[in-house]
Design a protein around this nucleic acid. Structure first.
Lengths: 131, 131
DNA sequence: CAACTAGTTTAGAATAGTTCTAAAATAAAC
DNA sequence: GTTTATTTTAGAACTATTCTAAACTAGTTG
């Protein structure tokens, strides 16, 4: 059983052909940010034909099983981040590109843990920049 | 010339009937968060019939002229905030409600001013909570 | 491995939020 | 009051995403 197959099984997901192909693209190289559409095109470019419905399925199921993190940047598109550790983002408004900011670079205090008795699921920080 | 009319003119906008009605709803009471749909329904409830196309027009033009701020929370809908001063948000995922966090309550350091020579337009912080 | 079961993929239809179109209405300027 | 530019509107169009239901596949059981 290879690394990617293990990664999927550990997340409680069946390692299907499509999920493994997508995982190979997403998780074998450097960390990346994708949209459903950008992922679909990149796979087509590599002669990997997976239906758009499956791309959406896989992105959603990977997100709900903790393999990806969804980022709300632009109300017209969902971005997904292969880096699931706590971190923040620069967003370059002209180019649409994202860049990570580590929690060492940017401090938030007090880091909220609870609100009205509810758990904090996630702290999203987006610094929007021209250019 | 009343306050709302002045507010629109100062922003470089013609004070049309529809813009004044929407301004009255948005800017005469306490600060609020709306979506196109929530604003449309609230106006219908008050027997103010403005087409949905105009609601979208007005929200967009108010945002581009600095009377509203758009918040990226949920990729399926755009939220607009009548509070245009720097502040942050709690987002209650189950109810879809927003609550403000003042910059006194939550500190970010170092507050970014520039990135790669580009100005920082805006620092968005969203704390997602269950409930 | 053959049969079975539950989960997955797919094309295409459906949906939801938003923008576009072009005609009628209105605000501001002359 | 006439003219001109802007705004509003209904409905069509568009785009990102989800749904549907049939075909397929992974994992399980005998």
């Amino acid at each position: 059983m290879n690394d990617l197959e293990k990664k999927l099984r550990d997340a409680g997901l069946r390692p299907t052909k499509q999920r493994l192909l997508i995982s190979h693209y997403l998780f074998s190289g450097p960390q990346m940010h994708v949209t459903a559409d950008s992922l679909y095109s990149e796979l087509i470019d590599r002669d990997i034909n997976i239906s758009l419905a499956t791309i959406y399925n896989v992105l959603n199921v990977f997100t709900s099983h903790g393999l990806l993190r969804e980022i709300s940047i632009d109300p017209s598109r969902s971005y997904f981040d292969t880096n699931i550790k706590r971190h923040y983002h620069y967003y370059f408004e002209k180019t649409g590109k994202l860049e990570d900011i580590s929690i060492e670079e940017l401090k938030i205090s007090p880091m909220p843990e609870k609100k009205n008795g509810f758990d904090v699921n996630c702290v999203d920080v987006v610094i929007r920049v021209d250019g």
